[in-house]
């Protein structure tokens, strides 16, 4: 019961705030709503016994990324003032397309995919994950990331990706030649 309440509150926070993010005219308010949406996702992680992910979500997404977004908005003053209409002339077309895709995916997940009794376990019947396993999450995650018998190659590839993105950000943000002169 407690799990269900956490899940419902988390979902309402994540989806409701997410709706505000895409519909709000003020970019700054959108960024604030994004933080609430992240908070809802963190609550869902908690209800799934993924404590480490929930903490990482709080620290990184709310603590770092959202703050960065807000800084970026505040530093570009023009964006702070604009209250752009998030809907443009293609709004109806886009709505129809996304509703169609949503309907197809929703029906694929809910109705067509055989949710037989064997692979749907009632929440109450689920065996609780042992505390020892939960406490070792960070250790397991760490060794899975850098262990040879783990996901070291995607991990290292991600570091190349971030390096390239960082260099690219500097190239793009560097003052244009005429600005320097």
């Amino acid at each position: 019961m407690a799990e269900q309440i956490t899940f419902i509150i988390g979902s309402i926070l994540a989806l409701g705030a997410g709706f505000i993010v895409v519909t709000n005219r003020n970019l700054f308010h959108g960024a604030l709503a994004l933080m609430i949406s992240f908070l809802g996702v963190a609550a869902i992680y908690l209800s799934l016994d993924a404590g480490f992910l929930a903490a990482a979500q709080l620290l990184i997404y709310i603590g770092a990324i959202s703050i960065l977004i807000i800084f970026a908005i505040m530093l570009t003053r023009r964006m702070m003032q604009t209250t752009e209409d998030p809907f443009n002339s293609q709004f109806l077309l886009a709505l129809a397309a996304s509703v169609t895709v949503f309907a197809i995916l929703f029906s694929a997940i809910v109705y067509v995919w055989p949710l037989t009794a064997s692979n749907s376990v009632p929440l109450a019947a689920k065996t609780a994950v042992a505390d020892a396993v939960l406490q070792d999450t960070v250790v397991n995650l760490g060794s899975a990331f850098v262990g040879a018998d783990g996901y070291v190659i995607p991990f290292e590839l991600a570091s190349i990706l971030l390096l390239a993105a960082m260099v690219g950000a500097i190239i793009v943000a560097w003052p244009k030649p005429e600005d320097v002169a």
Partner: peptide, 21 residues
């Protein structure tokens, strides 16, 4: 790995396309 490789392929290309900024 397919996804990460795809991004490692693409992101430098985004930047290179804008090189003559």
């Amino acid at each position: 790995l397919v996804f990460l490789a795809l991004e490692v392929l693409s992101i430098p290309l985004y930047i290179l396309a804008g090189l003559s900024r």
